[in-house]
């Protein structure tokens, strides 16, 4: 009997050692076909994001309103005279003059003035037109683009028509100085239109010269650069600010234990003074990620989130130039899953 038991003991020991040896060597190990390959990957930490804005700042000012004279189709007429020697500008300016002046005067008195003019002492009368002709040539000099020939031609014709008109007027009322002065005035305006007025004329717009009087056109040409506002904080700076704040909050955040607590997000209302201290006590605006399983932990988590923010209270490394951005953090999101 003893012999049988000894044999049994030896066999049993050997069998156990063999079995456990095989198990340890992976004899019954299930081959794991889903061995996940995790090749090493390069990770760049985003800690290098600067707090100072380096990106070009976009102006917050609206562009100045576009004014009508800029849009007129006649603007094209202006460059045209520049290269053209004579023919182009010459036909363009005369029509307005030729139309208004000859039309009213010759129609009213077609024939009699000529006789009168001839008969009348016309000597003093041709003088003014000559003066004007003399006047006219120097005026085109002001707008240098205008060729003299082009201006001289219309002015001469003007002078002739005016002389006619004056002759008529004189014939009608020789002693009437009034008529003379009228005619002179007319001649003057005509001369002005033909000479000095030419600079404005080509615009041809229906808008008057003083159309832009009330508008500050100074803002048109020199565009002011946008002031470096704190409000112009870019997304990078915002992210950096968020990171600076969360770096200081999450080490203090201790989660309550419970299922699905990591899904909770507390939205806090936090006011911070310029030294980074919290003003008053933060309040919880809202809780997100609440489920049936973590509902019992919600109130505890609210407290923990407030405690974490309070514990981090003198916030460091907050950019003072962006104080407007962090003086009132509402909502400041405290993610349970980021707790350490």
């Amino acid at each position: 009997m003893e012999r049988a038991e000894k044999i049994g003991l030896g066999v049993a020991t050997a069998g156990h050692v063999l079995l456990f040896g095989l198990l340890s060597a992976g004899f019954l190990a299930t081959p794991n076909p889903l061995k996940l390959k995790s090749p090493p990957m390069d990770v760049t930490l985003v800690d290098e994001v600067a707090l100072q804005a380096t990106a070009p700042q976009v102006s917050t000012q609206p562009p100045p309103p576009s004014v009508a004279p800029e849009e007129g189709p006649t603007q094209e007429a202006r460059p045209a005279p520049e290269p053209a020697p004579a023919p182009e500008p010459a036909p363009v300016p005369p029509p307005p003059k030729a139309e208004p002046k000859p039309v009213p005067k010759p129609v009213s008195k077609p024939t009699p003035p000529k006789e009168v003019a001839k008969a009348a002492p016309a000597k003093p009368k041709p003088m003014p037109p000559k003066k004007e002709v003399a006047k006219a040539p120097p005026k085109p000099k002001a707008p240098p683009e205008k060729p003299k020939a082009a201006v001289a031609a219309p002015s001469k014709s003007d002078a002739k028509t005016k002389a006619d008109a004056k002759a008529k007027a004189d014939a009608k009322a020789k002693s009437d100085a009034k008529a003379k002065s009228d005619a002179k005035a007319k001649a003057d305006t005509a001369a002005r239109e033909s000479g000095a007025g030419k600079a404005d004329k080509p615009k041809g717009s229906l808008l008057g010269k003083d159309f832009l009087k009330g508008i500050d056109t100074s803002s048109d040409a020199p565009r002011r650069p946008a002031p470096p506002l704190a409000a112009a904080m870019g997304p990078q700076q915002k992210a950096a600010l968020d990171r600076v704040i969360s770096e200081q909050i999450y080490p203090h955040l201790r989660l309550p234990s419970g299922a699905d607590v990591e899904q909770l997000v507390a939205l806090l209302d936090v006011k911070i003074d310029r030294d980074g201290r919290i003003i008053g006590k933060p309040s919880v605006i809202d809780i997100q990620g609440e489920t049936a399983s973590n509902r019992p932990q919600v109130s505890v988590y609210k407290e923990r989130a407030i405690q974490a923010v309070m514990a981090a209270s003198p916030f460091r490394n907050l950019p003072p130039e962006y104080y407007d951005q962090w003086k009132w953090l509402s909502p400041l999101r405290v993610y349970a899953r980021k707790a350490r």
Binding site: E5, L9, V11, A12
Partner: peptide, 9 residues
């Protein structure tokens, strides 16, 4: 081990 020793013996 003891159980198996007894069983065998």
């Amino acid at each position: 081990i003891w159980t198996w020793a007894i069983i065998i013996g």
